[in-house]
């Protein structure tokens, strides 16, 4: 069993810390100019900005030390995301089913952390990959064992989606920590998702003024525009080259293009996924855990969607190693 990271790639951590810090400093400078030179302070944006620093610090605290902290961090994030989902949908009232999902998320964490009993490599991929079947069977059995039927289909469906989406799909981020050179992958993914989000927002605001406002999905999220979508896609497609130091040599041109598409399209699909869930529930934000951003799910919406796609890209082209 390996407790230490398979490869201590600290120079990558430092590079990312420098890049993120520099970007945030530039943004801070712009905000300072708005506040003290132009005398038009933007208190909402300043709150959002402060939260970014905290999120950067948290990401570094969990990613830098190695695989165990990554798995712990991802598990906490999964539980927090599921908690918000359960509160927003009303699933939290059912302690049995939400307890079942909690148990499932903990099993995801354990299967990412232990070694494969046959191969001895870190992470038991066999168990990890069959968990959806067992979790579905387990969650469906809960109303049967309790002898309940009224309203149970809705609750079971919600808990299965909760487990699959926030427990298992996001759990791939924790399992990815077992790959060789994992810190590069993880930090790239976090950075790429964030920058794509920001690019979408900025391009949406700026380009819509030039080309006119064309809504992307007016039924789901009225603020998203085609300009933002294309801008985000363009940024996502260039990032694998700009940050190519994160990847081992097996990550050639093909995978890089695919990676750009996955982050560019998947990130925005993830964003819209949480949006349509919120519209259906009739709520605005999933929570208020991150000042200036809304809930944790409002921030991690793209990450959840992109994570398993990215994981399998890495697994296909480079293998998890070890």
């Amino acid at each position: 069993m390996t407790f230490l990271p398979t490869e201590l790639t600290h120079h990558i951590v430092i590079q990312y810390l420098a890049i993120a810090g520099a970007l945030l400093l530039v943004a801070g400078l712009a905000l300072a100019i708005c506040r003290w030179v132009l005398r038009r302070p933007l208190p909402g944006v300043e709150q959002t900005y402060r939260s970014w620093w905290i999120m950067l610090a948290l990401a570094m605290v969990f990613v830098a030390p190695g695989r165990t902290t990554v798995i712990v961090g991802v598990t906490l994030l999964s539980l927090a995301c599921f908690g918000e989902f359960a509160r927003a949908t009303g699933l939290y009232r059912d302690w049995w089913l939400s307890g079942g999902v909690w148990l499932g998320i903990l099993v995801v964490a354990v299967s990412s952390w232990v070694s494969d009993p046959r191969l001895g490599t870190p992470g038991w991929y066999g168990l990890f990959s069959v968990l959806p079947a067992y979790a579905t069977a387990f969650l469906l059995a809960i109303p049967v064992l309790r002898g309940k039927s009224r309203g149970q289909l809705q609750r079971v469906c919600l808990s299965i989606v909760g487990f699959l989406y926030f427990g298992w799909m996001l759990g791939h981020l924790g399992f990815l920590a077992n790959a060789e050179g994992a810190q590069g992958y993880l930090l790239f993914l976090l950075m790429a998702v964030v920058l794509t989000d920001v690019a979408g927002f900025t391009c949406g605001k700026l380009l819509s003024r030039v080309f006119g406002r064309r809504p992307l999905a007016p039924e789901i999220s009225p603020n998203k525009t085609w300009a933002g979508f294309l801008g985000a896609l363009a940024v996502a497609l260039t990032l694998p080259w700009l940050l190519s130091f994160s990847f081992p040599p097996c990550f050639g041109t093909g995978p890089k293009i695919l990676l750009g598409l996955i982050v560019g399209l998947g990130g925005q699909l993830g964003d819209l996924t949480i949006s349509f869930i919120k519209r259906d529930l009739g709520i605005k934000d999933m929570g208020s855990a991150i000042p200036g951003h809304g809930g944790i799910l409002d921030r991690c919406d793209s990450l959840v969607y992109v994570t398993p796609l990215f994981f399998h890209l890495v697994r296909w082209y480079c293998g998890l190693g070890g």
Partner: peptide, 17 residues
Amino acid sequence: SPKSWKYRPYPGYDLPL
């Protein structure tokens, strides 16, 4: 059962902790 799902969010789910 009623035709559509009924969601009952936590009262004050979007308030600070």
